[in-house]
């Protein structure tokens, strides 16, 4: 009996060792490249650290600085405003454009596959190429967009070079509102909505036909069917896309760096959180402060995601009840 038990134990531990060996590359990578930087940046956020000399513990000084800048609307405060503006505008518009396009592309028309491919294509263009393309298109003087706006007798905004914000303050009636650099970034992100659109399309295909048939029998029109059947059934996917969209928007870096001369130009109107972290860390060599911003970014994203999850019970409908 004893011999049998010990051989089972041996076999068991050998199997565990083999399993550990197999996951070792991943585990080592995770520990060194994810967990260690994660923990180190938390520690550094309480330090002053310039890469060249050892980190020096300064308590909550970096967080106090963040709070002061947030209240004064400078530095971090400016970056938070820019990021919030960009995230809210781009996520809202992406949902509207994504759902709208997906519904239209689900209509059975000739060339449906071609239309789907056309609208999906922008999302496979690399970010750098897309940024360069949009810088050309939205060039205030020689860009195609302003060329057509002028031809139509509409005002030609300065896009990436403008410090104006179209959405805030909302003074469209004064005739002074204009699209500026953040609006151009929003436009660019909505153009790449194809990824989200494909998910909406898949979800549209999953909505049971019987629901539409029943609604039709009850005399519901197209709009009513969209409102009472399509939207509620799409809501879990919209929820997923909103969460992912917020995370992506808050972390936007490459396109922001490219259009803003790497410094948030013009006049810090494109100084997003990730660019602010980059400048603090690698231009000003304030690793401690940069780590504190990164942690605030993490906390804000966590809070935003938690708030979205919390709100989901009021507007997200799962077929067959909540998961």
């Amino acid at each position: 009996m004893n011999t049998g038990a010990s051989s089972t134990r041996r076999r068991h531990s050998r199997r565990i060792a083999t399993a550990l060996l197999f996951i070792a590359p991943w585990a080592v990578g995770f520990l060194l490249l994810v967990l260690y930087p994660f923990a180190a940046s938390l520690y550094w956020s309480f330090c002053e650290y310039d890469l060249l000399s050892p980190p020096r513990f300064v308590g909550g000084a970096n967080y106090r600085r963040l709070a002061r800048e947030l209240l004064a609307g400078e530095g971090f405060g400016r970056a938070v405003w820019n990021t919030a503006y960009y995230a809210v505008a781009s996520v809202v518009l992406s949902v509207l454009a994504g759902v709208g396009l997906a519904v239209m592309l689900s209509w059975k028309v000739r060339g449906q596959a071609i239309y789907r491919a056309i609208f999906f294509l922008p999302s496979v263009v690399p970010t750098v190429a897309a940024a360069v393309l949009w810088m050309w298109l939205l060039d205030p003087g020689g860009g195609l967009v302003n060329h057509w706006l002028t031809a139509l007798g509409l005002p030609a905004p300065n896009w990436f070079k403008g410090v104006q914000e179209a959405a805030w303050p909302p003074d469209w009636w004064s005739g002074r509102a204009a699209f500026g650099s953040k609006d151009a970034l929003v436009l660019m992100s909505v153009w790449g909505v194809g990824n989200f659109m494909i998910i909406y399309l898949a979800a549209l295909g999953d909505i049971p036909k019987s629901l539409y048939e029943a609604a039709a029998l009850d005399g519901a029109g197209n709009l009513r069917r969209f409102w009472h059947i399509t939207l509620p059934n799409l809501s879990p996917v919209i929820f997923f896309n909103v969460v992912m969209g917020v995370i992506q928007a808050v972390q936007a870096f490459t396109q922001v760096y490219l259009v803003s001369e790497g410094r948030g130009a013009p006049a810090e109107s494109t100084l997003m959180l990730s660019l602010h972290i980059f400048l603090a860390a690698f231009q000003n060599l304030e690793m401690g402060y940069a780590s504190a911003i990164a942690w605030m970014l993490f906390v804000v994203l966590l809070a935003a995601t938690a708030a979205l999850f919390h709100s989901s019970r009021y507007w997200v409908h799962y077929q067959g009840g909540s998961p």
């Binding site: 060039d139 003087g141 300065n158 070079k161």
Partner: peptide, 13 residues
């Protein structure tokens, strides 16, 4: 300011 910005940007293009 908008005219000046737009014209300056034209230099880059």
């Amino acid at each position: 300011p908008r005219t000046v910005t737009a014209f300056r940007q034209g230099d880059q293009s």
